[in-house]
């Protein structure tokens, strides 16, 4: 039980077997999380550094929890806003980490490719927790795990990602992962927020939300960022909601079940209405639960996947 790559930098190029292995392993860890003492000694003695160069509550929290559940020691470093400005270089930061004998580095960074660069300077295992608009592999893995729980298989499933595709690492990782698993992927959002050559990635582009909803089994709704308004990429949140918001009326008009996902945090009443986010078709909270299990699986497998999982019940 081992992954083909030493690091998890993204899902582009990760094969079906490896994704399946991660998702299957995550299911076992999900069972661990349901135990009275939801903890295993799998990574005892291992140290994880969580480097967050960008604000993040959810992802960091989820990783930290996964590390604790695996009995790893973790240290946190967050240095927001300093990454692109001059200061200590990422290389120097990396060297310092190396000197502290750390086994895993979990990194969130605003620059695409920053974890790839880090993996070239370090002996430690690097896990990408989001690099700019490039990838956020564990998010896509937890999304796929959630979908596998709802549907028999990802094969042939029609998933449409809605919103700011241009600036979304969640979108890219989902596109790579889902396509590898045999799903059909569509994107839908304001033309200003859809990369010009996105079709080359193998996705369908839906110009309007109604067309997208006609065909989708799943809508993965992205958070729309307020700053984009200032960059003249869309006129207002009001107009965004009018054109692309997932509302109860829109869902009712489709007259068939569409599973609703959102990576969080939600702008309620903008990209997603509250009664949809909290409604029957929403799997948003399962996504959060699965996030911890997926991150445990990734850490475990990148550690070599040597320890036995089943019956590993003694906790501590």
């Amino acid at each position: 039980m081992q992954l083909k790559s030493r690091h998890l930098l993204g899902l582009e190029g990760v094969c079906q077997e490896d994704i399946t292995l991660i998702l299957d392993t995550a299911e076992s860890f999900k069972k661990v999380l349901d135990r009275p003492i939801p903890k295993v000694p799998t990574l005892r003695g291992k140290t994880v550094a969580n480097l967050f160069f960008e604000p993040s509550t959810r992802t960091r929290f989820s990783f930290e929890l996964a590390e604790k559940r695996l009995s790893a020691d973790s240290v946190n470093f967050s240095k927001v806003g300093s990454s692109v400005a001059k200061g200590e270089t990422l290389k120097d930061t990396a060297r310092n980490i190396e000197a502290m004998k750390i086994n895993f580095v979990v990194m969130r960074h605003s620059a695409p490719g920053a974890p790839h660069f880090l993996s070239q300077c370090l002996d430690s295992v690097v896990i990408n927790a989001g690099d700019g608009a490039h990838e956020h592999p564990t998010q896509a893995l937890l999304d796929m795990m959630t979908l596998r729980n709802c549907f028999q298989s990802l094969k042939g499933l029609k998933v449409v990602i809605v919103g700011d595709i241009e600036h979304s690492r969640v979108a890219r990782s989902n596109i790579y992962g889902l396509l590898t698993m045999g799903a059909n992927v569509g994107v839908c959002g304001p033309a200003t927020l859809i990369p010009r050559e996105i079709k080359a990635l193998g996705v369908t582009v839906y110009p309007g939300i109604e067309e997208a909803m006609k065909e989708a089994d799943v809508l993965n709704v992205l958070r729309i960022q307020l700053e984009r308004q200032k960059e003249a990429l869309f006129p207002s949140l009001r107009e965004y909601r009018n054109l692309f918001g997932i509302t109860r009326e829109r869902l009712d008009r489709v007259n068939r079940r569409i599973t609703i996902m959102h990576p969080g945090p939600i702008n309620r009443g903008v990209e997603l209405d509250s009664d949809v986010a909290d409604g029957d078709y929403s799997v948003i909270l399962s996504q959060v639960t699965n996030g911890v299990a997926v991150r445990m699986a990734v850490l475990y497998l990148l550690d070599g996947g040597r320890q036995k999982l089943e019956g590993d019940d003694h906790g501590n």
Partner: peptide, 15 residues
């Protein structure tokens, strides 16, 4: 360059 590769890499691009 803005093109397929920038779409893949999620990198800010120059058309």
């Amino acid at each position: 360059h803005e093109g397929k590769i920038s779409a893949v890499l999620g990198m800010p691009s120059i058309p």
